[in-house]
Design a protein around this nucleic acid. Sequence first.
DNA 1: ATAGATTATGGGTAGATGTGGTTAATTATC
DNA 2: GATAATTAACCACATCTACCCATAATCTAT
Lengths: 156, 156
Amino acid sequence: MTKTLNQNTFTGEFSYSLDSKGRLNIPAKFRNVLSKKNKDSFVITKGMDPCIWVYPLVAWQNIEDELKKLSSLSRVNRSFVRSTVRYTSTVKYDKQGRIAITQNLIDYAKLKKDVLIIGMVNKIELWNPKLLSDAEKEFHEIKSSEFDELANQIIL
Amino acid sequence: MTKTLNQNTFTGEFSYSLDSKGRLNIPAKFRNVLSKKNKDSFVITKGMDPCIWVYPLVAWQNIEDELKKLSSLSRVNRSFVRSTVRYTSTVKYDKQGRIAITQNLIDYAKLKKDVLIIGMVNKIELWNPKLLSDAEKEFHEIKSSEFDELANQIIL
DNA sequence: ATAGATTATGGGTAGATGTGGTTAATTATC
DNA sequence: GATAATTAACCACATCTACCCATAATCTAT
């Protein structure tokens, strides 16, 4: 019984599979970390990278509050809100712990059968493994100096 | 009775073995040093050298807090968080004092059966002995001058 | 030195977990 | 409103993991 291990944060990576019905299991370690207030639900949305972002329900509320503050007078704001929210939905996981991924997100992240699930502290990312390795390889070549700088600030 | 000798620091090296289930014993001297707040848990993550870093749970919280502050709007931040946290997990040790090492870390540090466990003051390093001696040999040849400089700053 | 305690290592097992498939319920379409 | 199509709830099973016990080696204290 490992009930109170992590405290509401997601870490680690898992290689799970998207089944023929578009269902994906969320790692038990991730589900077990969440409070009752999340009502067995996540919010899935478009990531800023070519992946899917998965938030605990209560964490998403805060983001939504921020979105509400953005003035609709600005066209940039309107476009930004529209582009994220149209991909956003609340999904409850079934008795086995799986969520149903919407088709537009599957298309956006180009998910096939094998899905890489990555804990990103306060959210979860869903990746096509191929897309991630391509992106990271290319990116790290360019930005390794900024990486080192961040590491020096943060890692002990 | 030497119960409260050291205060949460790790020194010395040990040669232990990774068993067929991916479990590794943490030296009793290291475990006995930790406060109750660590809940019999460590956080294992990717080291900056080709080894595994093991933090006491409470020490890792501070790093995680810093990671939480990084805005996801920056691509460098996202990539940095991902590159560290995907290798990170909280592991509780069993009644015999062993922790389970995740496969991605075993791969990263190229751990085989023999593992060198090194106390690094505020954290613990897990090495493939071969990789460590190679790395140190190569490094000393190049950087011995910087070693001397550090020695002048620090040594008593 | 010797007995007792602690520690490192190996293995077994019950319960938890991941995955596929089937049935019931809901929604959509004509 | 009847029927098809889609979604959600349920069941089954293989795999894996956390937890337990056993044993040998090492350390500690008298």
